[in-house]
Write a protein that binds this DNA or RNA. Structure first.
Lengths: 94, 94
DNA sequence: TTGATAGGCAAGTGAGCACTTGCCTATAGT
DNA sequence: ACTATAGGCAAGTGCTCACTTGCCTATCAA
């Protein structure tokens, strides 16, 4: 579970999750160009590839290979586990 | 908002949040002894104090001074902001 | 006032992480 | 077969962070 927090503790990785949440199933090169276009991120391909590996190890991203392409999908399961660990404290009665 | 993820990316700080979620309003020394008792954490008082400062900067902990004591309270607001940023993807229709 | 309690400030150290650089593997098209 | 595309592997570098160490401030009790 510590991998999830480590993965989320990076601005670039959070942007990647944002983009995958908007348009799911992107390849590495698509993510690279999307980050450059919409956020001005000048990261290299290798940097993004390493970020995606971290996200995949944390279970936040699920991949699927077809041919020479690898498609990346956002998985919200680990995010839900966070709120299950610290449920919202309701200080006002409903 | 980046402070929240940085604050959560540490095992000791997550344990502190766990303890405050169980028993709210503890002082620094109470948190220290609780971590030693229930988790075998051998951290010094200064280390815990720095962790609490990080948690407070992130808004995950709210403090209140009375006399020479400082009481710490867990705040779940930033946690809720995380799930608002990445809402659960429902892959099954309700 | 003196001593004890509760906490804060600041410099120094070691380890982990993001990023680059360079080269390599595998699939698709002609 | 040859070239281009899509991605992977690994070493090196700079920077941030957790933790320690030492000293200091403020409140309470005698």
């Amino acid at each position: 579970m510590a991998d999830v927090f480590k993965a989320l503790d990076d601005g670039t990785r959070r942007l990647i999750l944002d983009e995958l949440a908007v348009r799911d199933g992107q390849t590495l090169f698509e993510i690279c160009s999307t980050l450059v276009m919409r956020h001005g991120l000048g990261s290299t391909r290798q940097a993004i590839s390493q970020h995606l590996a971290v996200l995949e190890d944390a279970g936040l991203v699920v991949t699927e290979r077809r041919g020479r392409s690898k498609f990346h999908y956002f998985n919200s399961g680990p995010i839900a586990a966070i709120t299950q660990r610290w449920p919202p404290t309701r200080k006002d009665a409903p």
